[in-house]
Amino acid sequence: MNKSAVIELDNICYTYGGGKQVFALQNISLSIGSGEFVAISGPSGSGKSTLMHILGCMLTPTSGGYCLLAEEVAGRTASQMAQIRNSTIGFVFQNFNLLPRASALKNVELPLIYAGIAGRKRKARALDVLTRVGLAARVSHHPNELSGGEKQRVAIARAIVSKPKILLADEPTGNLDRATGKAIIAMLKELAADGMTIIYVSHDLEMVAEATRSIHIVDSRVVGG
């Protein structure tokens, strides 16, 4: 086992369907070190999102081992998994997944609520990260009043507000124009430079090229990287 690895996948399989099992992921073994900036690419339906959900502790693999920060994830209870999602992992989605009826600030505060942080301290931390992603002037806006790029920056702010070790981004530029997408990738790169491990999915070669390492998945298997 790589000692500095934050993520260690050992023969991960994920299948669905009862009788005739369909593999979404087949024998994936990966090791990702601290502070790496990794791109995952591959055609639609190759299993990229399933892999991201497993990495993000939202799905439990059918078989295989997943060591996160040198601790086995398999066998954890649902509430322990929630705890990991809250403290260790930040998630950014293609379609932003912001709460539509909450302001940018409230959206960013959400993980801190589940971390049990209250009142002024919570608000200050949320404002801090929103400033960091350049949205200090937009904190009270609701998602429908923000542009795509702004929404994604709110999502990034939400993902990093609880200072996770790992940031997972599932096609973060998929719904954005090229220039905005590049700005988002640049922001992720900056976070990686600060020591956060970042894994993002993209099938845009230009975006993938920004990564320091790329993993290619075809037909549920890793074929390169």
Binding site: A82, Q83, R85
Partner: peptide, 16 residues
């Protein structure tokens, strides 16, 4: 459903 998914993704437990 999606909102519940968002809450859970950022750390909401089932009991929450």
């Amino acid at each position: 459903t999606r909102e519940v998914g968002i809450h859970k993704a950022v750390g909401a437990k089932n009991i929450d």
